Simulated scan of single mutants.
Amino acid sequence: MNLANKITVARMMLIPFFFLFLQTYPSWLTERIPALSFMNSYGLYIATAIFILAAATDKLDGYIARKYNMITNIGKLLDPLADKLLISVALIMLVQKHMLPSWVAFIIIARELVITALRIVASARRIALAADHYGKLKLVLQVVAIVAVLLDNYPFQLIIDIRIDYIIMLAAVVITIYSGYNYIRNNYVRLELNR
């Protein structure tokens, strides 16, 4: 396994830690385990740092894979999978913590499932469907929106009373829908021609 793939796997291994730190633990458990009390107090900030670190490794592994010619089939599979897992877990956790409406998570996760199904069909026909620039913009907006929601609109709340985090999340939802539509539209013909 090359360095780029190891970074991708490391990103996937950060997801359970993000999940654990974002949890709210009950008082009966925090009384018995003091570390969980610490996690209740500071876990959100640690989880946010873990999420930012994990998201940043996406650019790093792609850069290393391209620069040092380390692009592999396993990397092509693991990299988008790691992104989808990270974003999906973050969205589900935000819904569970009542920091985000469930419809937002549903739309974003549903889009990812549809595109993944399309890629599986294409792969079965030996067609490689590459991500387009809208897909990359979608991921960047999703990461920024999730971080803004995790930080509860900080630092925007110091400047303005408007929930900028929700506006960014709404923009992420819109570009998620559009990028999914665009991806299907652009690749449908290729799949039809290769039946």
Rank of each mutant, 00 (worst) to 15 (best):
L129I: 08
A148N: 07
V174E: 14
R185D: 15
N153M: 15
I160Y: 09
M169C: 14
A122F: 04
R185T: 13
V173D: 12
F156K: 01
K136R: 12
I146T: 04
D152M: 10
I160A: 02
A124E: 05
V149I: 13
D132R: 02
V140Y: 14
A172H: 13
P155L: 03
R163W: 14
V144S: 13
V144T: 12
G135M: 00
I159F: 11
Q142V: 08
D165R: 09
M169D: 09
V144H: 13
L129D: 03
G180I: 02
Q142Y: 13
R126K: 12
I167D: 09
Q142C: 09
D165K: 15
D161N: 14
A171C: 14
S179R: 01
S179L: 05
R126T: 04
L151T: 01
G180D: 00
V147T: 05
V121A: 09
V174L: 15
I175R: 08
A122H: 06
S123K: 02
L137W: 11
D132I: 02
G135P: 01
D165Q: 15
L158F: 06
N153Q: 13
Y183G: 00
L150S: 08
R126N: 09
I175V: 14
V174P: 10
K138Y: 03
D132N: 04
I159C: 06
I177E: 03
Y181H: 08
Y183R: 06
H133I: 02
S179H: 00
V173T: 13
Y154V: 04
V174N: 10
L150R: 06
A131S: 01
I167L: 13
L129Y: 06
V147C: 05
S179F: 06
Y166K: 15
H133V: 00
Y181I: 10
Y181V: 10
L158M: 09
D152G: 05
K136A: 11
I160R: 05
A171E: 02
R125I: 07
L170G: 11
A128V: 03
I162V: 06
A128Q: 04
S123R: 00
V140N: 07
I175C: 11
Q157L: 02
R125S: 12
R163D: 13
L151W: 00
Y181G: 10
H133C: 02
V140G: 14
V144W: 12
A148F: 11
Y178K: 03
L139F: 15
V174G: 08
I120P: 02
L139Y: 03
V121W: 10
Y183T: 00
I127N: 07
V149S: 13
V143M: 08
I167M: 15
Y166M: 15
A128R: 07
L139M: 15
D161G: 14
A124G: 11
I164R: 09
V147A: 07
A172P: 14
G135L: 00
V121E: 07
I177A: 09
I162W: 12
D132E: 01
V149L: 12
I159Y: 13
V144Y: 12
I159M: 06
I164W: 10
